[in-house]
Amino acid sequence: MINFKFILESIPSLIGAIPITLLMAFSAAIIGWILGLGIALIRKNKVPVVSQICAVFVSFMRGVPIIILLYIAYYALPIAIYNYGVSIGREIDTSTVPAVIYAIIALVLDQAAYSSEIFRSALSAVDEGQMEACYSVGMTKSQALMRIILPQAMAIALPNLGGLFLGLVKGTSLAYYVGVYEITATANLLAMPALNFIEAYIMTTLIYEILSFIFNKCFRQVENRFKRFRATATA
């Protein structure tokens, strides 16, 4: 009933698809979280107009399922790029843009919105006295942010960022629907000819489980390192 030959043969292809999954996850996390931190700082400092725009953006991104974001990015961006080309007098062939770019952009926006909420609450959780202490020794606001406030906020945000990242890795599976050959799409493709669905998806499940196990461990490690200064806070 289980086709072991198929499993053995499909392993290399499935493993070969891991990099594209990781490419999406890492680039979306890195770019998205930097944007998210920016949004958090803008909203925390109540920058007029921009702050309101960010609030609407975050609310929209949090309300719309990733799959729909992916579709919107996949169909809207080529038109936007084409129209931009026309406006500068060039005809850009949008079919040469790989689908993974659109997927990454959608995931970046999603991560920016979610991480901004995590950063915002982490920044609020840093004791106000810390900022005052910075001022009392004569630091500027940016020195205080960089040296004292952000490192503490980071330590607070890390567990939630870890959870967000694991969700992101899982979310990349939806890029299948906009034509990215990541792990899930590859599994489907391999399974189709002889309908080896059960084998293909057990393998896929295993790969995701291993990935999330590894990332979970990594985040725990980083968390402990960041938290060393609070190690005995409760003791």
Partner: peptide
């Protein structure tokens, strides 16, 4: 921990396409 590791889409395929075969 298993449920937190598996993408919902993969779970859907596993159950919808895989389970009936088994």
């Amino acid at each position: 921990s298993f449920m937190r590791g598996i993408p919902t889409l993969v779970l859907i395929f596993l159950l919808y396409l895989g389970l009936p075969q088994v």
